[in-house]
Computed example of a mutant assay.
Amino acid sequence: MRKRLVLAIALLLGGSAVAQAQDAPRIVMVSPNPLGVNDYLKLGAAGTQQAAAAHGGTAKIFESVDPITRKRDLEAAAKDGASIVVSLGFEFTDLVTEVAKAYPKTSFIAVDYCPAEQPDNLYCVFFREHEMSFLAGAEAAWLKPSGTFGAIGGVDIPLIHRYTDGFLDGVKYASPDAQTRTVQFVGGANPFSDPARASQVASAMFFDNVDTILVAAGASGGGVINAAQGMPGKTVVGADANQCPTAPGSVIDNVEKRPDRGIVFAVDALLSGHLERQISLGLKEGAVTLSTFEGTADETQCLGSKNADVLARVKALRQDIIDGKVKVKDPMGQ
């Protein structure tokens, strides 16, 4: 009798282990381009790995290079047995619906975009980028009350205007009489990975008496920072990661959209059965932020972190936005 009981317990425990193994998520993130030096894509990969580890699962990263490989990698992820496929970036907008329909038992999470047609197994994660950009604009204007401000985006699409227009709106909030310039774009064949072209655009703006530029152009942003370093008094607000240590004295702050936190949030909600079809994450959820909020002045090395009075005003404004006391206009109208 005792042997039967021990055997039954062993089978029960073994069965539970198998069930747990089967339930452990297999998560694949498909990036639109190689991770390379793209901090945003690297954050997405880190978030995918973190989400999988938190639930005892596994993670893989597929690095695409063009529309053909993006669709192929989405399909390959589903065929490979992924329970969750994360696609990061608007480049998948015209691809993900068809693939999601073909693999209805796989859950797809679209990060930073959402197609017009959304199958039942496709979930969309948006970010309120305009909130952090507005904060950065106010910060820059408070640091340089007599400055002239501009912004450079990778391409002229609504999402990028959340950065560029949000920044200039923040400048005007803090300093209504501040001078601003028309938003410029990197453009070209590789707008998010062409620092040389971005440097040319920035240099022209600096020569036009612009003092501070926000850049939202992926890996091209390094070219804008390089241009600022060569011109005394010129400063930049970077994006995606803390650029301040790479250019001491030239970077006021950085707007950091955190796809890693968005992916972890979405996977947690999906696996617990509480993920809505579309979710929006912003300052309140910590999914968008500034580098100055992520460490001390010595750690971040940002100009904004070193001015205690300005930093206090920026923190107060952040709370006012979270509390709804200050309304930030969404250039996308959402």
Rank of each mutant, 00 (worst) to 15 (best):
V326H: 03
K101Q: 14
A219G: 03
G286F: 03
I68V: 14
I322W: 09
P331Y: 03
A174Q: 04
S107K: 13
R128T: 10
D309T: 15
A76T: 13
S107H: 14
G89H: 08
V210E: 11
F92Y: 13
H55F: 12
E117R: 12
V237P: 01
K306M: 13
P104G: 07
Q229A: 10
A219E: 12
S146C: 00
K71F: 01
I68E: 13
I160W: 01
T93Y: 10
Q20L: 15
A21V: 10
V215A: 05
D240C: 02
A136T: 12
A141G: 04
G147L: 06
A227D: 06
D240V: 05
K71N: 13
Y40R: 02
M132K: 08
D165C: 00
A219I: 03
H55Q: 09
D165H: 12
M205A: 12
D268L: 01
N38L: 03
D80P: 02
T289N: 12
H161A: 05
A228R: 07
K105P: 00
I252R: 09
S16M: 15
R72G: 04
R26V: 12
D112E: 13
K3V: 11
C302M: 08
N33V: 10
A217M: 07
A51K: 05
P145Y: 08
M29G: 01
A269N: 11
V264T: 13
V171T: 06
Q184E: 14
A116E: 14
D268R: 07
T69D: 09
T296K: 03
L11F: 12
V215P: 02
L290P: 04
D240K: 02
L283I: 01
A316V: 02
Y123R: 11
Y113S: 05
P34K: 03
V28L: 01
K325R: 15
L135F: 05
A46S: 12
R258F: 05
V264I: 13
P25N: 03
I9A: 15
G222H: 03
G187H: 01
T289G: 01
D156I: 03
I61M: 06
H55W: 11
G273A: 09
P248N: 06
T148Q: 12
L12I: 10
F90H: 11
A52H: 04
G273Q: 06
V125N: 06
V18M: 13
G333Y: 03
D298P: 00
A202K: 11
S31A: 14
L311N: 04
D323E: 12
V264K: 11
A189M: 10
A45R: 13
G166I: 08
A174Y: 04
S291H: 01
Y103N: 08
L168N: 06
F62W: 02
Q184M: 12
S220F: 02
T48S: 05
H130I: 00
P119N: 07
A100W: 07
G222F: 07
Q319D: 11
E285A: 09
D211H: 07
D165A: 15
V210R: 09
R4N: 09
D194T: 09
I263M: 05
L214R: 07
V171H: 09
A19K: 07
R162K: 14
S133A: 15
M132D: 10
